[in-house]
């Protein structure tokens, strides 16, 4: 997938295979995301989130960030969504539509989101109209490259992060413990 579209001049009108795939997966991802935030069935929202996150993993693969993609699958799909499902089930998520999945803030939210989307897309397109990513050559996100950068240049943040994780672990345990009375 990283040995594609070599040699010809890039242009909007001549999309490469990678670009087509990217756009298609992106559309699927976006659709799943929209469904995630709009479906009235709570568990379905979580399942659509799986699709969206999986789609993003594919997008990472397409961007040659292989390691990130598998991390995405492992952490998000394998753990985060499972936790979310846990949460939903423990808070009595019903089967079927919940009439009150959305709050009264919905119109405002829609307005803000659409305005923000319009602004961002406009700005981004305006800024990166003529920018191209070169996907050839050395793979950018191989485990070796990621590992080297992570443990050579980012060791200190990495260790700090481990402390953060430990703190979160302890915090979650303390919060969800039930007092034995």
């Amino acid at each position: 997938m990283n040995a594609l579209a070599a040699g010809h001049h890039p242009g909007f009108l001549s999309p490469t295979g990678v670009e087509i795939t990217f756009v298609l997966v992106g559309l699927a991802t976006l659709g799943a995301a929209v469904l995630t935030v709009s479906t009235r069935q709570l568990v379905h929202a979580a399942l659509w989130l799986v699709v969206a996150l999986g789609g993003l993993a594919v997008e990472y693969l397409l961007l040659t960030a292989e390691f990130i993609a598998w991390v995405q699958v492992l952490i998000y799909v394998g753990s985060v969504v499972v936790l979310l499902l846990f949460g939903l089930m423990l808070t009595k998520a019903p089967i079927g539509r919940s009439p009150d999945a959305d709050s009264g803030n919905r119109p405002v939210a829609l307005g803000v989101a659409v305005a923000a989307a319009a602004t961002l897309v406009w700005v981004v397109v305006d800024a990166f109209r003529t920018t191209w990513i070169d996907l050839h050559g050395v793979v950018q996100g191989s485990s070796r490259a990621t590992g080297v950068s992570l443990f050579r240049h980012w060791v200190l943040p990495f260790e700090a992060l481990s402390v953060l994780l430990l703190a979160a672990l302890v915090g979650a345990i303390v919060l969800s413990r039930r007092e034995e009375k």
Partner: peptide
């Protein structure tokens, strides 16, 4: 690949 694709996709996902 065009940088605008992931950028736009990211913007839209963010707004969603």
């Amino acid at each position: 690949m065009h940088l605008a694709y992931p950028a736009v996709l990211a913007s839209l996902l963010f707004c969603v």
